[in-house]
């Protein structure tokens, strides 16, 4: 039977990709951020997951505003990255796991989540950077991917409570999956940041700490606010915490403990965070 090894949560700022390409990991600006990842690498090397179920948001690579699904589940054989508009090196492709994707899709629709299914789907830095950070020398990603995209771009956004429930439904799907894979759940994005408007540069460490402190054993605390109030506390793009909340739901109920946590301000315009939760 499949086993969920735990959850890996990380920011996904595009400039991290630039820092990796330039080899800036040990420079004074970047070191406090990259220092958060060796413990995650060690954990993954020990646990050896072979599937990643990853909650993220697309930034205008796969989805344009002509068609914007609230929740989209990938069911492709392979997922490619492409130029996102800055001409940066293209990230490695991911091997998909269509059978598990369809099993999760069956579970979600059965649980009355009216999702979009994608048999062809490009994945952007929000998916690639988390893997670049923890498998820096891998010639190919050692895990198969089930990507789940959440609309954090165009209001109305799904509520935090709905995202938690989505994750919980994904968890039910993983529980009933008959394969023997070892599964890591991943949530990417955040934490507090705002790129647009006169409030650009807004960062809120108090709220970020509240989110990190609540994630393991009090996720309900994270879903009390409306998405608009989350934007107020976390910034226009800090609302990407919805991806973390959904991923926490996919870990299932029961106690979790923090294997590792790193928090550093700033990376680019963002409060950057890294966490691993494993069953207590």
């Amino acid at each position: 039977m499949a086993r969920i090894i735990g959850g890996y949560f990380t920011s996904h700022v595009p400039s991290i990709g630039g820092a990796i390409v330039r080899g800036d990991q040990q420079t004074p600006y970047w070191k406090p951020f990259f220092d958060g990842y060796p413990p995650v690498r060690e954990w993954l090397a020990e646990e050896k997951p072979d599937v990643a179920v990853c909650f993220y948001n697309d930034h205008g690579l796969n989805f344009f505003l002509d068609k914007m699904p609230t929740f989209a589940v990938g069911a492709a054989e392979v997922y490619h990255n492409e130029d996102e508009g800055w001409g940066l090196p293209v990230f490695k492709s991911f091997e998909g796991h269509p059978a598990l994707s369809w099993h999760i899709i069956e579970q979600l629709v059965n649980d009355e989540f009216d999702i979009t299914t994608c048999q062809s789907m490009l994945v952007d830095h929000a998916l690639s950077i988390p893997f670049e950070l923890v498998y820096p020398d891998a010639p190919a990603w050692p895990v198969k991917l089930v990507p789940i995209a959440i609309n954090t771009v165009q209001f109305p956004l799904p509520s935090a409570r709905r995202c938690l429930a989505l994750g919980q439904a994904v968890h039910r799907g993983l529980e009933s999956w008959q394969g023997d894979e070892r599964i890591v759940v991943i949530g990417t994005g955040g934490l507090s940041h705002q790129l647009d408007g006169e409030r650009a540069g807004f960062i809120n460490p108090d709220y970020d700490r509240f989110c990190m402190d609540s994630l393991a054993n009090d996720p309900e605390a994270l879903v009390a606010d409306t998405t608009k109030e989350i934007v107020r506390k976390s910034g226009s793009q800090g609302v990407e915490i919805l991806n973390w909340i959904a991923a926490r739901g996919a870990l299932g109920e029961g106690g979790f403990r923090e294997k590792t946590r790193n928090y550093h301000v700033p990376i680019s315009n963002t409060a950057a965070a890294t966490m691993v939760l494993e069953p207590a």
């Binding site: 109305p156 807004f202 709220y207 509240f210 402190d213």
Partner: peptide, 24 residues
């Protein structure tokens, strides 16, 4: 965490967020 959450909820400000346009 619960106390913090309650304080945040009770203190929840309504209305527009300064310097912020929600992309709706």
């Amino acid at each position: 965490t619960i106390a913090f959450a309650q304080r945040e909820r009770l203190g929840e400000a309504q209305g527009p967020i300064p310097g912020t346009t929600l992309f709706d």
